[in-house]
C-alpha cells in the first residue's frame, strides 16, 4: 500500500504531527523551526493555502495551511508567539504567495515577519497603525482551552528573542513516541480515512 500522506509528512522529517481532524494533520512548531519545516513541506510539493493569525491569551497563534495538488489532506502549522515580541520568520523566501498573507497579518495584528521583503500595509490605510483584529484583555480566550490537544512547553532559551513556546503533541501521541515507535496508533488508524478525507 502506498504510504499515507501523514506518514509521508512525518518521514520527511517535519516535526511529528497529530491528525487533529479527519484529513487535517497539525504540526505545532516553534518559530525557530518554522523555516526548516516550511522548506521540507515545499520539497514535498505542498502548496500554500493561507497564513492567518489569531489573538489568544498566550500570544498570537499563526496558522499556516498547506495542501497538496494530488494527494488528499491538509497540513497545518501552528506557531505561537508572544504578545511582547510578535516576531516570526517570514516564509516568503519559500512561498512567495505568503508575502501578501504576511502583510495582511501585520495589518491586522502588528506581527513582524523577519526577512519579509516589504512589510508595508496591504489592505488598511498606510498612515495609521490600526491592528483591528487585536482583542482586548476581556475578550481574549485561552488557546489551550480551545485547542485541548495542544500543550505549552517551556521554550528552550532562545538565542536573542524570547518567543514563548509552540504547542505540542497530544498526550497519546507523546506516549507512543516514548515507546519509540515512529508511527503512532492514531495515525495508523487514519490511513484509510485519509484517502477519502476532507468530508467531516
Amino acid at each position: 500500500m502506498k504510504q499515507s500522506w501523514v506518514d509521508q509528512l512525518n518521514a520527511a522529517g517535519v516535526p511529528k504531527c497529530t491528525e487533529v481532524r479527519k484529513g487535517v494533520a497539525c504540526f505545532c512548531l516553534e518559530s525557530q523551526n518554522l523555516l526548516d519545516s516550511v522548506r521540507k513541506i515545499l520539497e514535498l510539493e505542498y502548496y500554500l493555502q493561507d497564513v492567518s493569525a489569531s489573538d489568544f491569551q498566550e500570544g498570537y497563534l499563526l496558522t499556516y495551511h498547506f495542501a497538496h495538488f494530488e494527494e488528499p489532506g491538509q497540513a497545518v502549522f501552528r506557531v505561537l508567539i508572544s504578545h511582547e515580541h510578535p516576531q516570526v520568520p517570514s516564509i516568503s523566501s519559500f512561498y512567495q504567495g505568503a508575502i501578501w498573507h504576511e502583510q495582511e497579518c501585520t495589518d491586522f495584528y502588528g506581527i513582524e515577519f523577519t526577512g519579509h521583503p516589504d512589510l508595508k500595509p496591504l489592505l488598511l490605510v498606510p498612515e495609521e497603525n490600526l491592528c483591528p483584529l487585536r482583542k482586548d484583555a476581556r475578550s481574549k480566550k485561552s488557546f489551550l482551552d480551545i485547542f485541548p490537544d495542544c500543550k505549552l512547553v517551556e521554550a528552550p532559551p532562545p538565542p536573542e528573542s524570547e518567543e514563548n513556546a509552540g504547542g505540542q503533541e497530544s498526550p497519546e501521541e507523546k506516549a507512543s513516541k516514548k515507546k519509540g515507535s515512529g508511527k503512532s496508533k492514531v495515525q495508523k488508524e487514519d490511513d484509510e480515512t485519509a484517502q477519502d478525507s476532507g468530508q467531516a
Binding site: E45, Y95, G97, G198
Partner: peptide, 25 residues
C-alpha cells in the same frame, strides 16, 4: 505552488486539482 494558485488557473497549468474530485465533499 509557491503562490497557492488554485481553480481553473491551476488546471490551465496542467494539474488536475479540483476539490470536487480530490477530496470529494
Amino acid at each position: 505552488r509557491r503562490y497557492g494558485v488554485t481553480g481553473p488557473n491551476l488546471r490551465g497549468s496542467g494539474v488536475e486539482h479540483d476539490l470536487r474530485r480530490n477530496t470529494p465533499y
